[in-house]
Amino acid sequence: MTDHHARETPLVTSAQPEDFFQLLKPRVMSLVVFTAVTGLIVAPGRLDWINAIVAILCIAVGAGAAGALNMAVEGETDALMRRTRGRPVAAGRVRKNDAIAFGMVLSVFSVMLLGMTTNWLAGGLLALTIVYYAWLYTLVLKRRTPQNIVIGGAAGAFPPVIGWAAVTGDAPWQAWLLFLIIFTWTPPHTWALALYSAGDYAKAGIPMMPVARGAKSTRLQILLYTLVFVPVAIAPALTGLGGPIYLVVSIVGGVAFLGLALRLYRSRAGDQPDKAEAVGREAALYDVRAEAKPARNLFAFSILYLMALFSALLVEHLPGVGG
C-alpha cells in the first residue's frame, strides 16, 4: 500500500472519547430530546419516572447514532464544506469504519432498550427514524433531489411521536400533528440557512435548493412552505392539544415568522456568493453579508419559534400547571 493510502486510513486511531461524542451531533440531540420530552408529557397517561428518563435517553442516543452514521458516510463531503469540515470524520480524527461501528452499536442498543422499557411501537419508531435518516436521507435523497430535506426532514419530526408512543403504546393523530409541525417547519428553516451557505453545498455537489433552482426560487418556496407551516403550527390550539398560552405564542410567533419570510422573499438574499468566499476567511454561522441578513434572521427566528411552541405545550401539560 502507498503512503498516501496509509495517511487516509491510519492503522491506529488517536480518537478521543470527546470525538466520538461529537459524532452524535449534540446540538441536534438537544432539540430531539426537547421535542421527545414534549411528546411524552403531552401524551395522556403517565410513565414511571425511571422508565421516562430511560426512554428519553434511548431516543437521544438513537438520534445520535443516526447522526454518527450520517457523519461516517458524509466524511468526504463534510471535508469540502466550511460549516462541517471540523467534524470528527471529516477532520480525520475518527476513522470512517469506527464511526459506522459506533453508530450501529448505539442504534441496536437504544432501540432494544427502548422497546424493553416501554413498548415495541416506540422501539420500532426509533428504528424507523434511524433508518430513515441514515439511509433514506443520507444515502438516497441528499444527492438526488433539491427536495431532499423536505422528505428527509421527517426524521427530525419523529421524536415527539416516539415520546407519545412510549407512554400510550399507540400513535394517534394528535401525536402526528406534532410531527407535522416539525415536518413543515424544516424546509423554511433549512433553506434559509442554505441561502447564505449555498457556495459550500455547490462545492460539495449537494443539490440544495439554492444550488439546484437558484436563490429567487428558494425564497419563493420558503414563503410558500411558511404559508403551510404557520396554520399547522396554530392547529394544536384549535384541536384542544394546546391551550391559551399556546394559542397566543403560535399566533404571535406565526405572524412574525410570516413577516420574516415575506421580507426574505422581497430581499436579494442568496443572490451573491457567501461572505467567506467573498472575503476569503472563516465566517461564523450568523456572520453574513448585509443582503443575506433576512435569511439569517429567518433561520435564527425559526429555531426560537419552534422552541417557543413546544415550550408552551410543555408548560400547559405539566402536572399542577395546566393538567
Binding site: 414511571d48 425511571i50 422508565n51 430511560v54 435517553l57 432498550l113 424493553m116 422499557t117
Partner: peptide, 10 residues
Amino acid sequence: ALVYLVTLSR
C-alpha cells in the same frame, strides 16, 4: 445499571 433499574421498575 439502566437495565437493572428498568427491570426493577417493571
